[in-house]
Simulated assay, not measured.
Amino acid sequence: MTRQPLRLAILEAERILAAAGVASPRTDAELLAAHLLGVERTKLMMVPLVDPPVVQALHELVRRRAARVPLQHLTGDASLGNVTLSVGPGVFVPRPETELLLAWGLATLEGVDRPVVVDLCTGSGALALAMANARPDATVHAVEKEPAALAWARRNADQQAQAGDTPIRLYAGDVTDPMVFMELEGLVDLVLCNPPYVPEGTPVPPEVRNHDPHEAVFGGRDGLDVVRHVVGCAARLLRPGGGVAIEHDDTHGGSVPALLRARRVLEDVQEHTDLAGRPRFATARRTPPPTS
């Protein structure tokens, strides 16, 4: 059995993925090869030759990726912060843009001892688990209404707890319910949310259209159906001085900050852009208590 150069197999994979319209064909080809070989992507150069069955297995993964199955469904995982999450059909795949929202949340909690954090619309549990990993002194609550996504979140939470990280408190619930987390009203230091926010009818890539759950992506005609409830929920939960960060569509650079400013108990409303300079998330603070 003649061994074959891995470099040539990756070049062929890149060619196939580029022809299929995959946005990052070289990166995806290398990540699939690294997944298959069980090595880090940066160590691929240390594997010059592979057996023909490996090339065949890589070709099969590339074929599925060329059919626009999400990369993360093929590798079985995605990451946020320092946490690796299991993902697959039935749950929204975390995106790199959400790292910025996580970083803002962590910066907001600097100097806060044993903070209380709430992750609304948790999906795979990404934000909640990344926060618990970075702040082991925090009490992190997370809520999700979709049973399939909640199952992925429970799986990820169990894996992280087994790895020794601080467990999160995971709930089945709907952020549009005015009673959700009623027991935490006025006690929360930080509310984070990556809700469904794409306006209905917006063209999206095949990976999103065919594989991400519709209810986790689209937020009604203007994309704000869930966001409106999130703003109200955050205003209710935050303690004075606490912060909220809500990810949103790049068309919402004016509307989400306006929703936050409309709540008299919220102040210091700010818009934040992603690495491409597009509006990506908005933040606010709960007004401090009156001084005597």
Rank of each mutant, 00 (worst) to 15 (best):
M1C: 03
T2C: 03
P5E: 11
L6T: 02
L11P: 00
E12L: 13
E14A: 05
R15Y: 03
R15A: 15
S24T: 15
S24Q: 13
T27W: 01
A29S: 14
E30S: 08
E30N: 07
H35L: 00
L36A: 05
L37H: 02
L37V: 03
L37I: 03
E40N: 09
K43A: 14
L44M: 04
V54D: 03
Q56T: 15
Q56N: 08
E60N: 08
V62M: 07
G90C: 10
F92T: 08
P94I: 09
E99M: 07
L102N: 07
L102H: 09
A103W: 02
A107R: 14
A107E: 15
T108D: 10
V112S: 05
P115A: 09
V117C: 08
C121W: 08
T122G: 04
L127S: 06
M131Q: 04
A138C: 09
T139W: 03
H141Y: 15
A149C: 04
L150E: 00
L150I: 02
L150F: 05
A151I: 03
W152H: 09
R155C: 02
N156V: 00
A157K: 03
D158P: 00
A161C: 06
D165V: 00
R169F: 07
A172E: 15
G173A: 04
M182R: 15
G186T: 07
D189R: 00
P196H: 08
G201S: 12
P203C: 05
V208T: 11
F218P: 14
D222G: 12
D222C: 10
D225W: 13
R228M: 11
V231H: 12
C233G: 02
C233W: 01
A234Y: 09
A234W: 06
A234S: 15
A234N: 11
R236I: 05
L238Y: 13
P240R: 04
G242V: 10
D250E: 12
G253N: 07
A258E: 13
A258S: 12
V269A: 09
Q270R: 15
D274A: 06
F281G: 01
T283E: 08
A284D: 10
R286L: 10
